[in-house]
Design a binder for these strands. Structure first.
Length: 444
RNA sequence: GCUGUGGUGGUGUAGGGGUUAGCACGAGGGAUUGUGGUUCCCUCAGCCCGGGUUCAAUUCCCGGCCACGGCCCCA
């Protein structure tokens, strides 16, 4: 028996129903904010991802050579392909572009709950507009989506890489990687701050000719916690440091104010200046959403402002802003929440559908009912036709188990009388209805 | 990359060096040749793969594969 490859999943009709409903819900949110869907290929040139993330990423790629000896790879993420698409197809489109995307991505790594080798990502990118208002639009959309799907237990953390970075470089730490080192001193400092390694931080400052006394205010800055009220203390700390600009802080303030006006209030919002997203192409505001109950795999969404389009010859469009949403993880969180609340419905609206009617021809020529089946379907009613010639009792059981709302039985007697028996499976009531689609539809 | 636990019909499980490998759900058929979600009967279908120990392995040992966890990492 051939099994599905490691780290992949099959989706049964019941599961797929839910996934489609979730995708539709996200899509509706995106469209309400003017974001329109695009789609890119499942495989791309290997260069696309090594250019963005460096040669180290190959270890986690499903890369291969095609029959024309081209170096290709299954896509590990969707931002780079969308950037590529913009450069190739959308240079002359009116800016800004508001794009959304959804699809599977592939990473060769160990998988766990909420982490698979084939996983699904939903995301948006706002291209050709930057600044605090553009950032607020993106954050607000993320909040709206999580709000719309009914998730309750989540936290959004918003930061700005420019603030710590500005403070550190303002003190005199270099943004350039020295020869022989693996990362610039600024990045090392941010890592020390994030991990709480104060000794390492002080040491780093001293070896770069900066007074170690500066470590304390930096630590205080990194440790600030809370909502937008933390910006006041942050301002005081930054003002006390030499050569540090307050510009990034002012921008973050504008962004936060705009988000409050644009989006529903999230369950928990925290300003956290150490949100680093680990990636050096993020240049401004960064944010992420955590579902605490999911533990180690609890980050369900991440994004921010980044500079990538210069890699495609479009530096004028940098920086852009966007986020990626872990489709599978949010769904897992919703499923866990539904179980905890003893609720059947996991994604809002997943089970609301048009009524379904099971048409059961009984000891008659099936041809007699086919036109009605076709007409009902065209008029928007879901119709399933009994295909196995079951006896009447079995047929009723079949109709029940496929989730039909009604049965419509047509036997010899009915045919003679020119009608059929329409039965509601929920109430058990049964009435004779004329043998035409309109009469049946009106009786539902 | 490190590490823990586990793999018995389609699903969930019991058992265990020699067994007709048990049960439940499921699916198909029948009791019931015009009415379902209750009952009864019948049928279908299983010891992950390879090697080793043994007279004998589904059971014990090793390896692989797969699954589920905890770290590391995460574009």
């Amino acid at each position: 028996m051939v099994q599905r490859p490691r780290g992949t999943r099959d989706f049964t009709p019941q599961v797929m129903n839910r996934r489609l409903a979730f995708e539709q819900l996200l899509e509706n949110c995106a469209r309400a904010s003017g974001f329109n869907r695009v789609q890119t290929p499942i495989f791309e040139s290997l260069d696309l991802f090594t250019a963005k993330s460096g040669p180290g990423v190959i270890a986690q790629l499903y890369n291969f050579e095609d029959k024309g000896e081209r170096q290709l790879t299954l896509r590990p993420e969707l931002t780079a392909p969308v950037m590529r698409m913009i450069a190739e197809e959308m240079r002359n489109d009116t800016k800004p572009l508001r794009l959304s995307y959804y699809g599977q991505c592939y990473r060769y790594e160990e998988f766990k709950k909420g982490r698979y080798r084939e996983f699904f990502q939903y995301g948006v990118e706002l291209i050709g507009a930057s600044g605090p208002l553009a950032e607020a639009e993106v954050i607000a959309l993320a909040i709206s989506m999580l709000d719309a799907c009914g998730l309750k237990d989540w936290q959004i953390r918003i930061g700005h890489v420019g603030i710590l970075k500005g403070a550190l470089s303002g003190l005199g730490l270099s943004l350039e990687t020295p020869t022989g080192a693996s990362e610039p001193p600024v990045a090392s400092a941010m890592r020390f701050l994030d991990k709480g390694d104060d000794a390492g931080l002080a040491n780093l400052l001293e070896t770069n000719g900066i007074a170690a006394s500066n470590a304390a205010p930096l630590r205080a800055l990194a440790d600030l916690e809370g909502g937008s009220e933390t910006l006041g203390p942050a301002r005081e700390i930054l003002s006390s440091l030499d050569g540090v600009s307050l510009e990034a802080l002012d921008e973050l303030q504008i962004t936060l104010d705009a988000v409050v006006a644009l989006a529903p209030a999230p369950p928990s919002l925290a300003v956290d200046l150490t949100v680093a997203r680990g990636l050096d192409y993020y240049t401004g505001m960064v944010f992420e959403v955590i579902v605490p109950s999911m533990g180690g795999e609890g980050q369900v969404l991440g994004g921010g402002s980044y500079k990538l389009l210069h890699l495609f010859g479009l530096p004028d469009l940098d920086p852009c802003c966007g986020f990626g949403l872990g489709f599978d993880r949010v769904l897992l969180a919703l499923e866990a929440q539904a179980v905890a609340e003893g609720r059947e419905e996991v994604v809002p609206g997943e089970s609301s559908d048009k009524p379904m009617i099971a048409v059961i021809p009984f000891n008659i020529d099936v041809q007699k009912v086919l036109p009605i089946v076709g007409q009902l379907r065209r008029s928007g009613v879901r119709v399933e036709l009994e295909l196995r010639g079951r006896k009447i009792g079995k047929a009723m059981g079949w109709a029940d188990s496929i989730g039909a709302d009604y049965t419509f039985v047509v036997g010899p007697r009915d045919l003679e009388a020119g009608n059929g028996m329409l039965k509601s499976l929920s109430t058990g009531e049964q009435t004779a209805v004329a043998l035409d689609a309109e009469s049946i539809a009106n009786s539902l």
